[in-house]
Computed example of a mutant assay.
Amino acid sequence: MPSRRRFLTTLGVASTAGFAGCTGIGGSKYSPGTDDTTEWPMPAYDRGFSAYNPDAAAPRDEVTERWATELSGLGPSARPVVAAGRVLVPTSGALVALDLETGEERWRHGQEQPWSSAPAVRNGTVYVGFADERAFVALDVETGDEQWRLETRGSIKAAPTFDHNYDTLFLGDDTGRIYRIDATTGDVTLRGEVFGPVTALAQGRSLLVGTESGEVYELFVHHEGFTGLWRRKVDGWVTTITTHNGDIYVGTFGGPVYRLQDGADVGSSQWEVEHGPTHLAATGRHVVGSYGGGLQTFDARTGSIDWEREGRYDAAPAIAGDTVYIGGGEKGENGNGFVEAYALSGGTGIDPLTFGGRRWRFPVESAVMEGLAVADGAVFAVTQGLDESPSRVYALESA
C-alpha cells in the first residue's frame, strides 16, 4: 500500500490494516443483480447519489458491444443517464439523446458550447442545467421538446436532486444560490444561499450541499426557507457527496475522503482518508472510490482499505449487484481507454496472487471520462473526444 495514504480517525492517527487485494469484503455479502429492465435515472442512480443498484443485472463474465455511437465532435461533460428508452449524454455542445436499443441519435438540445450538467429523469421529463446559458430546463424525454425554462442567477454545474416525494427539485449555481423548484411548473418556491459555487447536491435525511470553497452543509427545508443544521469545512473542493441509509461520504479534489457523522455529532468526521478518491459510490457496507491513480474500496465503518488497484481511473464508478464497473485510460492523442468490471469482494488471495477480482476488461479507443451507468442489462460509458479519435458512447452487454 503506498506510504502516502494514511487512515485518520476522530480518535487519532493509525495506519491502514490489511493488504491490497485481500478478500476483505467477502462474496457472500453481495449477490448478482437479476433485473435486466432497470434504469439509471439520475447521474449516480438515486437522490443520495449512491451509484449503487443491488438489483440491476449487468455483464459479469464476457462482454460484447451492443452498439457504439460517435458524438460528432462533442466531448462528455458529465455522467450519462439511462431512462425511458433513452441514453442521455451531457456534452460540451448539447444534451444528446440516443435510442437505448440501437444507439441512434433521437434528439439534441442546446446551442454551441452550453456545457450541460448531468441530467435527471422523472415521469417522462428530463431536467438539466446549462453552464454557459445560466439556465435550467425541463424537456420531454421522448422528443426533446422544452416544457419550461428557469433563468438562474449563475451557471449550473452540479447535478440536481429530488426531495423524498419527487415532486420538488433542488439545484445550486456557481454564485452559491440554492433553489427549490416545482418539478411540474418550474416555479421557484424557495431560495437560499451558501458560501461558494455549488459543486455537489444529495438528498439524505435532509438536503446536503457541497461547494468549491470546501464546505459541506446540511439544510433543513421547510415552507419558510432553508435552515442550516450544520456546516463543515473540508480540505479541498467538494467533488462528490454520497449518502446511503443516512451515512454521508464526501470526496474532495486533492484532499481526503470523509465519512461525516449524523445524530448528536453532526458534521464531525467518523473517519478520514488522506489523498483519497475523487469519485465515490456507496453500498452501506462499503465505499468504492476512483481517481487518476487508482480504484479503492473502503470499509464503511472504519475507512480501512479492503482492496485497491492501481491505474488511471478517471471515470466515476457504478455498482450493480456484486460488481463494480469502472472506466479510464491514458488521456491525449496517443492514449487509449478501457471499461472494466471487478468483483465487489475484490477476489480471493493477496496481490499479486489474487484470483477472481477482475471479471472482464473491454478496450476502447480513448479514455473513458466522467462516469458509468448501469441499466437495461448493460454498462454505458463515454470516451474523451480527440481529433483522431472522436468521443463515443458505448453500450456493453453480456456476450
Rank of each mutant, 00 (worst) to 15 (best):
A381S: 15
Y179T: 03
T242W: 08
G332W: 09
V250A: 06
A17Y: 06
D235R: 14
W107R: 10
S304Q: 07
T16Y: 11
G192S: 10
Q147G: 03
G346I: 12
N245D: 14
D173F: 04
D351W: 11
T184W: 08
T37G: 03
T102V: 13
D163V: 10
G225M: 14
R5L: 12
D322P: 06
L344T: 10
Q261M: 10
G172F: 03
I305N: 02
P256G: 04
V339Y: 04
A159H: 12
V379A: 12
S268T: 15
L100R: 11
G124Q: 06
T383F: 03
R392Y: 08
S269R: 03
L372V: 02
T227E: 14
G27Q: 11
F380M: 07
L95T: 03
G303D: 10
W115G: 00
L190P: 01
P41V: 07
P90G: 13
E133P: 06
R134D: 12
H244Q: 15
G27N: 03
F7Q: 09
T278H: 11
P317G: 06
R285E: 13
F362L: 06
W115H: 07
T239L: 01
L207A: 05
L396R: 11
Q111I: 08
W237T: 13
R392K: 10
A135I: 12
F380C: 01
D247C: 02
V234D: 09
G385Y: 00
R122I: 06
T37M: 09
H275D: 15
G267P: 05
P41H: 00
W115C: 03
A56Y: 08
G110K: 05
P256M: 09
E101D: 10
F136L: 03
A135N: 09
I156G: 07
T168M: 09
D61K: 13
W230D: 10
S72V: 00
G267T: 07
G103T: 01
A282F: 04
S117G: 15
N123A: 14
E105I: 08
E62L: 11
E310L: 10
D35I: 10
G204T: 04
D174Q: 12
A282E: 12
